[in-house]
């Protein structure tokens, strides 16, 4: 009996430990793997949390999934990168207002052997056509993420109907950016990636940037408050404070200051 009483005490202690985390004010932010895995949040959040005493809890998903999290009322703020989807989210009444926060760009990554002969080019659409013509291995995120939508738009601009054209060369992995890069590294395949994740990615193997600098590779990030009128559980005050800080001069400066190896990962471009 003594043993079981002790076990109960231990269980109660564990529960206390578990609930202790939930005491302070916090908001939940649904964001993308690119912002989390590039290390941006680790750099930004301590600055904000210290000033406002609001804890920011980030759940990192693909853009499509992150927006769905907002649609179910499970997030207070959504911070993602696929403008048409974000505008639909606001139009449907799930988000209050969409604000530009920052941008970076996508890069085409490929093996150094460059079987499709695209390395060093500046025209991403031309590169996509060459990859298709060479039937060179290409890894797609295939997960309704912002990067996946950007990739699909580029196939469309290339005049290639990817749904019909995909074959063994086109590998739809359904994975986040990092795991997809791991797959591409393993297969020696081309892949579209956001620059932030690429810069912080360690397992590059034989991969390198093949194409960059095309205006069509622009990657805009936007932030939205989840509509408190729809979900009363949304912590409007704290969430709005975070959004206001992100687009303020201080927040924008903190974004610009985040660099890896001297290279900036994101460029602030809020409109005020």
């Amino acid at each position: 009996m003594d043993l079981s009483r002790r076990a109960l005490v231990a269980l109660a202690a564990a529960c206390a430990l578990v609930t202790a985390h939930a005491q302070s004010t916090y908001i939940t932010v649904a964001s993308t793997t690119s912002t989390e895995q590039s290390g941006l949040f680790k750099h930004l959040l301590p600055v904000f949390e210290k000033k406002y005493a609001i804890q920011v809890r980030v759940v990192a998903l693909g853009t499509g999934q992150a927006l769905d999290m907002g649609r179910r009322g499970d997030a207070d703020v959504v911070f993602v990168h696929a403008r048409p989807l974000e505008e639909r989210f606001v139009a449907e009444g799930f988000g209050v207002q969409r604000l530009d926060v920052m941008y970076n760009d996508f890069v085409l990554i490929g093996p150094q052997s460059d079987p499709a002969k695209v390395a060093g080019g500046k025209d991403i659409v031309e590169a996509f056509r060459k990859i298709y013509a060479a039937q060179a291995a290409f890894v797609s995120r295939g997960d309704r993420s912002g990067t996946h939508f950007a990739e699909l738009a580029l196939w469309k601009s290339s005049g290639i109907d990817i749904a019909a054209a995909k074959g063994a060369w086109y590998r739809d992995t359904g994975q986040g950016m990092g795991p997809a890069l791991n797959s591409a590294a393993g297969m020696g395949a081309y892949i579209l990636a956001d620059r932030g994740t690429w810069l912080s990615f360690r397992n590059r193997a034989d991969l390198a940037i093949a194409v960059q600098g095309d205006a069509r590779l622009f990657n805009q990030y936007g932030v939205m408050l989840v509509n408190p009128a729809k979900f009363p559980s949304v912590k409007q005050g704290a969430a709005q404070a975070f959004i206001d800080w992100l687009v303020s001069a201080e927040g924008q400066g903190a974004i610009a200051a985040y660099r890896i190896g001297g290279e900036p990962l994101f460029f602030p471009n809020a409109k005020n």
Binding site: Q37, L181, N182, A185, S200, F201, R202, R204
Partner: peptide
């Protein structure tokens, strides 16, 4: 899982 995603094997 996260470190694997970041490629820090």
């Amino acid at each position: 899982a996260l470190e694997t995603s970041k490629g820090d094997l």
